[in-house]
Design a protein around this nucleic acid. Sequence first.
DNA 1: TTGTAGGCGTTATCAC
DNA 2: GTGATAACGCCTACAA
Lengths: 328, 328
Amino acid sequence: MAAGRVTIIDVARETGISVSSVSVALRGEPGVSDATRSLVLAAADRLGYQPDRRARGLRERRSRVVGVTFGLHQTFHAALVESLYDAAAGQGLDLVLSATTPGRDVAAAVDSLRHERCDAVLLVSPDVDAATLAELGSRQPTVLVGSDLTAPGVDTVRADDDAGMALLVGHLLERGHRTISFVDGGDAAMGATRREGYRRAMRAHGLEREIDVLPGDPSEDAGVRAATMLLARHAPPSAVLAHNDMIATGLLLTLRSAGVAVPEGLAVAGYDDTRLGALSSIDVTTVSQEPARLAEEALRLALSRAEGRSAGEASVVVPPRLVIRSTT
Amino acid sequence: MAAGRVTIIDVARETGISVSSVSVALRGEPGVSDATRSLVLAAADRLGYQPDRRARGLRERRSRVVGVTFGLHQTFHAALVESLYDAAAGQGLDLVLSATTPGRDVAAAVDSLRHERCDAVLLVSPDVDAATLAELGSRQPTVLVGSDLTAPGVDTVRADDDAGMALLVGHLLERGHRTISFVDGGDAAMGATRREGYRRAMRAHGLEREIDVLPGDPSEDAGVRAATMLLARHAPPSAVLAHNDMIATGLLLTLRSAGVAVPEGLAVAGYDDTRLGALSSIDVTTVSQEPARLAEEALRLALSRAEGRSAGEASVVVPPRLVIRSTT
DNA sequence: TTGTAGGCGTTATCAC
DNA sequence: GTGATAACGCCTACAA
């Protein structure tokens, strides 16, 4: 009960050993006898001692904590955060999360992290303009994940979405589709890149005249709206690509409840390879951004920038992977 | 660029005013002349000064930060966290998030928060046993949200799921249903309560013999499996309640693709009133736990416990709200 | 191997 | 109204 107020001094008093020796013993550093160390460790455990990260960070001038902003309702962000936890554990780092919501923008999320004095901040596909990004990135080591924005001093890690769209278009062509529409992600992160990737891939196959971009945003509702539009057409396409899996899910649900067979009547593909799309009742063809890889690279860049080992801006681009499922 | 390393000392030097006066001026406390204050504020802004929360917390022995653990892939948790942000902003608090994932359990998430020395920790529908909860709750002020577990010194805020199930059963009875099955949530938070709430409501209407609990867990796939079982029956029920909206979604998708009309052939209802269930292509009848209300109560309890104004365990139960949509 | 003396950035106390 | 000073909990010298 009284724990959380246990300090290193309590451990020292309990063992009769000096504070500095306790500190050394606790951190597993050499410079203390085995007997002393086990004594200290036992006492710390008994007392429920947890080092105060604030005090440690204050003194060490670094916290080994990386802040992460992400969209609370974005399934891909969740996947990336999960990978970040895995990668962080492997590098002895801890993560602190700050979410963006419809009522809390990236700047607010980053501000909260700034107060916390993280060593670095990771922005997962943030919904910001270039000017804001530059402003945010100027205040602390910052790495952008899953976005192709750039700002001075801000590193970027992202998947090659241009290649990803080419994979999808190629796959659909192999399946015999030629009329392939695209549901847009609006001004979401990577929105323009995926849209242009789709256009480029279509042109590369001589399908310039079939290019068809439906308006949207990164939400299931956008998929629902797009499906409704398609159903109202007298000459719908034979396949639809979506900016992400959430949109694809909205598409699928609406199409199926309208009695359209997928993929026979209309093929559908998403993007991001999220849990949502992998559900057996969705099971949508998609492209993986390889979040584990993105997470690892992002933390690596964040650390080297935090330690001042970076100059200019690094940009890591990870190759995507096609995930074929039942909707194509 | 160099910001984030701007300290109160820099502001003092810049203005030629003492550190203590700068501190007072910055916090808007009385005890400093208006001229001094505006001088300080201007300099702080110019330098991009942000107080270091670690140092402040160290000194003040409280951080005005509340830690929150939540399931990264649970849609209801996301809704609750969003409400928590709103409520926290209203109370001058900041939130620090620590997620649980398949590879990171509640204990790990709480540990991370403990290092951070939050004033209190909120556990959103944690997946823990009573012993672990008691252990976690003994270390710092802890409030449980959306769970009916109990532990010494741990406050609880939750919706009245027993009443919620009664609302749903009552609603279905009004619609003329008598054979109402229930798809279980397994050992998820509130799993037992909802199952028993269903049973109790059925018994209250003399429908004890119609009680029918299908096994499940809080996932869409559980809904898919349950629907498959129902479809194989020669005497299926006329309505199905699900432990949550995700299960209900799995049910709906499977039923519809099997050609069952909803609600005519089979009525379906979920629980939690999540974004997923609100989609126009799902549009499932459900029960809201009133997350805004839960969030407010949770923070209130967290604060009073952090300030030592609590004794024993508080338990706040919020009345649920029926949300009728097209599936019933 | 162990103990002592700063100092990290802040705020509270107490002089002036 | 203003400014020195100590203390929060910890770690890194440096001294014993």
